[in-house]
């Protein structure tokens, strides 16, 4: 199938060209963050303090990799279930976050925020942790080191294979897929 090649930071023109169901290769930098890091982001914002990373134009990957074996940049690094981050995502999108990568459906509030703030939700194939690790070329802890496997890690990625799930036009690949193939 046709593959769209995109790079970070994501600009609005690129996002406008993405449609649910597209396969993309993503190159650039992304940040891992899951439950504990998201909770801390929101607590930080509530205290009117700055986030430890500038999320404007950036992409967050919901991921908790397996340990890197010696000589490897990272272990298996597939996505975790995104819905656990739903409560936090609209706030981050309002601050300029442009993309999220995970697996599974998002809440209505997240989908609305995606349209409103010109963003995109990508699916990485769940359970394809080895394949996804091949596209990671660098990895550096940039914040919340005390959270261990949940620390924020800046990943350099080269042609990371993803699918667009929610686009700015309100399309949802999960709904479209079921509607098309249910019989």
């Amino acid at each position: 199938m046709e593959i769209k090649v995109i790079t970070t930071p994501l600009d609005d023109e690129v996002i406008k060209g993405l449609r649910a169901g597209d396969k993309v290769f993503l190159t650039g930098f992304i940040y891992t963050a899951r439950d504990a890091a998201h909770k801390r982001f929101i607590e930080t914002l509530e205290k009117n303090e700055p986030l430890p990373i500038d999320i404007k134009g950036q992409i967050i990957y919901y991921c908790g990799p397996s340990p890197a074996p010696p000589g490897k940049v990272i272990g298996a690094c597939g996505p975790t279930t995104s819905s656990r981050m739903d409560a936090y995502s609209p706030k981050l999108l309002s601050l300029g976050l442009k993309g999220m990568i995970g697996k599974g459906k998002r809440s209505q509030a997240v989908k609305e925020a995606i349209s409103k703030y010109n963003a995109v939700y990508f699916g990485a194939t769940g359970g394809a942790g080895a394949l996804l690790s091949k596209s990671v070329i660098s990895s550096e802890i940039v914040a919340y080191e005390d959270l261990g496997p949940e620390a924020i890690v800046k990943l350099g990625v080269d042609k990371m294979p993803l699918f667009v799930i929610n686009d700015i036009y309100g399309n949802d690949l999960y709904e479209m897929g079921i509607a098309q193939y249910k019989f």
Partner: peptide
């Protein structure tokens, strides 16, 4: 579905990469 086929192809190549690189198939072990 073409998207579905593509996903399964990813899973097959994932299994091969895991074997070659000796890393887990999925990070949730």
């Amino acid at each position: 579905s073409p998207v579905g086929k593509e996903v399964i192809r990813e899973l097959i190549s994932n299994a091969q990469i895991a074997k070659n690189e000796q890393i887990p198939i999925c990070q949730d072990t």
